[in-house]
Design a protein around this nucleic acid. Structure first.
Length: 577
RNA sequence: CGGGGCAUAGCGCAGCUUGGCUAGCGCGCCUGCCUUGGGAGCAGGAGGCCGGGGGUUCGAAUCCCUCUGCCCCGACCA
């Protein structure tokens, strides 16, 4: 039996923190010799890093198979035609990695695989008898991120499990969705991740039904989530529904008045200049959605949620603040003086729910250095649509139970979507039902960020010395450290224990390097092996070795003949959940 | 894509302002001695197109132009 010796293992550990790594998981992955960067957002997995990746893949695969999923493998490179058919060739924008073959035919590297799978299914599924169908793959994905960051957390190439469900109807979809939701809970629990499923926005994947994101709570997370300490409610702030909050009206009484506000161009400055709270101000923003311009109103103390705005208005490909030139052209002033009073007839005015509740307000006058005070919504200015457009703030009451919500950061490691018939309609993926009627497949899609989960796990499981792998995803479960390479009994015992452990199916490595004990200990802690068996001359004289748990730091002296059994027991315990 | 920063040995950095001999330091690496329970010590050694290209100059890591790559903040985004 071959021995995995650390002396031969390609596991280049670093003492110093690489300058390029910002977050702890990235630093530790590089320092522990798990990954090396190839280009921004592209990484090579070194042997230990790959073992972790494979372990997570295995857990995901087991859970998918147990849920009735069938694994297949779709191409990374996809023809442009399919993307044009779904309309996403244009929608996806610069994030899509595009390329051409020698015949100048267009392709992209798949950021996701709805097009391919739906194209497949429309050709293969004819009858309701073939449904439901749960198909998945674990495959590399490509997104030309504007800003790849934090190592594996946001790369341009990453490993993802994506499953697509095809059902006869909404009820079937609901069942598939629930199955996947439950499977995801098991996956992340098995990976040792503290996660939270939150209500989310569907984004560019689209779809009509609900969607949940699985968030690993960590300070370095890129998503803000709100959650309720009192009940199960949790949501991405992008999604979190708000109820309008009525603020006591403290603005001065009187008719709408034009006041001179020299050089006042921001909410902050206006509030200060007039000595009124921001809650009495109306923030007016001219937005451009694709070719269309419209005015958005929101209370001065609130932040606009562009995602809600875009969803409410039907989904623009691009949505952004209008340029100062457009503001000048449409309203005749600069952006700092925009207001809703007497705007052109054709300009649509949408307002957050809180705006109509303001009895009087202060707003821009579309004239440099002037604002209106005591402008009454719907009287002094027109509102065409009232919508929930603001960003939820921590401390607001939970919609379900009233408890003040809290905010946390999360790393999105999974998302489940109800797609409905968006893609089956675009591709004509239909089947014949019991009555011989042609129906569209009802679809769902479900992703797990496999490579990102590695980073997420480290964010949650580390200390000052290095990584602390949860047993189920550790690259190896145990490391044997002979303290001396000269003491023959120590060396022999180490090799003997190695072989015994391996025979029992324990994933084990032997640190046979001719290094001082301290070096080996530091590396073992850095890499994060859950268990360490230390063999030194002194304890061995009493027939004992040391067994140490990385997570707790607890060590116990054990008789040589008992340690193997003890290791095996501890691993089994750690793997059961 | 806007703003900022960086690029010198495998890693971390100094040198550049004010151009000048063979370009330095720490860690790591190789050899030997010594050491072996928390990143030891001594001695010797290898390793650099100073990111690429162009320019100024007798002379460029250093000054100028340009390109590229990388990092951070923002915007954006499944």
């Amino acid at each position: 039996m071959d021995i995995m010796r650390v002396s031969q293992l390609l596991n280049p550990t670093l003492r110093e923190v690489p300058a390029e790594a910002e977050v702890i998981s990235h630093q530790l992955m590089v320092r522990a010799g798990l990954i090396r960067k190839s280009a921004s957002g592209f990484y090579t997995y070194l042997p230990l890093g790959l073992r972790v990746l494979r372990k997570i893949e295995t857990i995901v695969r087991e859970e998918m198979d147990n849920t009735g999923g069938q694994e297949l493998l779709m191409p990374i490179m996809q023809p442009a035609e399919l993307w044009k058919e779904s309309g996403r060739w244009d929608v996806y924008g610069d994030e899509l990695m595009r390329l051409k073959d020698r015949h100048n035919r267009e392709f992209c590297l798949g950021p996701t695989h709805e097009e391919i799978i739906t194209d497949l299914i429309r050709g293969e599924v004819r009858s309701y008898k073939q449904l439901p169908l749960l198909l998945y793959q674990i495959q590399n994905k490509y997104r030309d991120e504007r800003r790849p960051r934090f190592g594996l957390m946001r790369g341009r190439e990453f490993v993802m499990k994506d499953l697509y469900s095809f059902d006869r109807d909404e009820a079937g979809l609901a069942e598939s969705y629930q199955k996947m939701y439950d499977a995801y809970c098991r996956i992340f629990a098995r990976c040792g991740l503290a996660y939270r499923a939150v209500e989310a926005d569907a984004g560019a994947i689209g779809g009509t039904g609900g969607t949940h994101e699985f968030m690993v709570l960590a300070d370095s997370g890129e998503n803000a989530v709100v959650y309720c300490p009192g009940c199960s409610y949790a949501a991405n702030v992008e999604k979190a529904e708000c109820r309008p909050q009525v603020i006591e009206d403290v603005s001065p009484k009187g008719q709408r008045t034009l006041v001179f506000t020299p050089k006042v161009k921001t909410i902050e400055a206006l509030s200060e200049f007039l000595s009124v709270p921001k809650t009495t101000l109306v923030k007016s923003l001219l937005y451009q959605g694709d070719e269309k311009l419209f005015l958005v109103l929101i209370r001065g103390d609130r932040a606009l949620n562009e995602i809600k705005l875009n969803n409410a208005l039907g989904g623009f490909v691009s949505l952004q603040l209008a340029s100062p030139e457009d503001v000048e052209k449409v309203l005749g002033c600069e952006p700092g003086s925009v207001g809703p009073v007497d705007v052109p007839e054709g300009l649509m005015v949408v307002a957050d729910e809180e705006v109509p509740l303001m009895k009087k307000s202060v707003c821009g006058a579309n004239k440099a250095d002037y604002h209106f005070v005591d402008a009454v919504p719907s009287v002094d200015f027109r509102i065409d649509q009232v919508l929930d457009l603001r960003m939820m703030e921590p401390g607001e009451a939970c919609l379900k139970c009233g408890t003040p919500l809290k905010e946390a950061r999360g790393i999105e490691v999974g998302q489940v979507f109800k797609l409905g018939t968006k893609y089956s309609k675009a591709f004509g993926a239909t089947y014949l039902d019991l009555n011989g009627e042609e129906k569209f497949c009802v679809m769902g899609c479900y992703g797990v960020g496999v490579s990102r989960s590695i980073a997420a796990s480290i964010e949650q499981n580390h200390d000052d010395y290095g990584i602390i792998w949860p047993m189920p995803i550790a690259p190896y479960q145990c490391i044997i450290v002979p303290v001396s390479t000269k003491d023959e009994l120590v060396v022999e015992t180490a090799e003997k224990l190695y072989l015994e452990l391996k025979r029992l199916g324990v994933e084990v490595v032997l640190d046979d390097r001719d290094e001082r004990a301290g070096v080996k200990f530091k590396d073992a802690d850095l890499v994060g092996y859950p268990l360490r068996v230390t063999i030194g001359s002194k304890t061995l004289a009493n027939g004992q070795v040391e067994l140490r748990e990385r997570k707790t730091g607890e060590t116990q002296l054990i008789l040589v003949e008992e340690v193997v059994k003890q290791v095996k027991t501890m691993i089994e315990q750690a793997l059961s959940f």
